[in-house]
């Protein structure tokens, strides 16, 4: 078989594999939009720092909000988006802090897992264990 006869076959094979990859990449991809354009009134300035944490696992944070729940205790919500082409999973641990910056030990503070589809976003949330909690810290780890 000569080199000339291999070339077209190789081109067809390349085209086919590229198309297959694109098709497979498209599977499970989520397209997201929202009617809201203005940032939430409960957004907190920590978004950049939290986003830096998530960027390390190839995700990004759209918003971080903190607001009082129905009972008056604080609740945190973090919108995590996946701009990549594959579903990404991660584990996170949210620890609540009191006004003096001390962590509040509670069985409510446990490692949790989440998965974000390609192109999609999720909201992870946490409720403070009590009224003494005013702030939180978050640890993130890419799922194995």
């Amino acid at each position: 078989m000569t080199r000339r006869s291999i070339a077209p076959r190789l081109a067809v094979l390349l085209a086919a594999s590229t198309a297959a990859s694109l098709l497979l990449g498209g599977c499970g991809t989520v397209n997201t939009t929202s009617t809201r354009e203005a940032p939430s009134t409960d957004s907190v300035p920590a978004r950049t720092r939290v986003n830096d944490l998530f960027t390390e696992i190839f995700l990004h944070v759209r918003d971080v909000r903190m607001f009082p729940a129905k009972s008056g205790v604080m609740q945190a919500q973090i919108d995590v988006a996946n701009d990549g082409f594959e579903t990404r999973g991660f584990s996170y641990l949210i620890t609540w802090l009191d006004a003096r910056g001390n962590s509040i030990e509670s069985p409510m503070s446990t490692w949790k897992t989440a998965r974000v589809a390609a192109g999609g976003s999720i909201t992870i949330s946490s409720v403070a264990p009590g009224p003494e909690a005013t702030d939180f810290s978050i640890q993130v780890r890419r799922a194995s």
Partner: peptide, 16 residues
């Protein structure tokens, strides 16, 4: 079990 307990508590505490 930890996830379940945490989820239950978060709801119970948030609802008051």
């Amino acid at each position: 079990l930890q996830t379940a307990a945490s989820g239950m508590l978060e709801s119970l505490v948030a609802q008051g």
